Amino acid sequence: MARPSRNLPNHEAGSTWPDERLDDAPSEVARQLALNLRTAMGRRSTRGVRAATGVDHTTVADILKGTTWPDLNTIARLEHGLGVDLWPAGVARGHRVEDDQG
């Protein structure tokens, strides 16, 4: 059975991604993770991040644009390779969670 489709992280934000806070918990976590990644990258390109982490440059770009849901393997590889914590701990508390099955 196929998994139900869900909105992309940037669905609520549109052109304001990733600079505007979102009400949906998963989207806000993804937004803050993208901001943390952008900061951790510094002056590195997406290909530079790929060299440091092994995460494909297109995946890095998609995370930054909010057009993918990064999985735990990807996040762990990014954190390890960049030497920083990217996961925005505690962000989901106090946010709503949308039902994507409608």
Rank of each mutant, 00 (worst) to 15 (best):
M1F: 07
M1Q: 10
A2W: 05
R6F: 08
R6D: 06
N7F: 06
L8R: 01
N10W: 00
A13G: 04
G14F: 13
T16R: 12
T16F: 11
W17N: 03
P18N: 12
D19H: 15
D19Q: 15
E20V: 15
D24G: 00
D24Y: 08
A25H: 02
E28P: 05
E28Y: 09
Q32D: 11
Q32W: 07
Q32I: 09
L33M: 09
G42D: 12
R43K: 10
R44Y: 06
S45L: 06
T46G: 02
T46Q: 15
R47A: 13
R50E: 15
V55A: 10
V55H: 09
D56Q: 10
H57R: 13
T58K: 14
V60P: 00
A61I: 05
A61M: 12
I63W: 02
T68Y: 07
W69S: 05
D71L: 05
D71N: 15
N73A: 13
A76F: 06
R77Y: 06
L78A: 02
E79I: 11
E79C: 04
E79N: 08
H80F: 10
H80R: 14
G83S: 12
V84G: 04
D85F: 09
D85Y: 09
D85K: 15
W87P: 04
P88E: 06
P88S: 11
A89L: 11
G90R: 02
V91G: 01
V91W: 04
R93P: 01
G94F: 12
H95L: 12
R96C: 03
R96K: 09
R96Q: 07
E98M: 09
E98I: 08
D99N: 13
D100M: 03
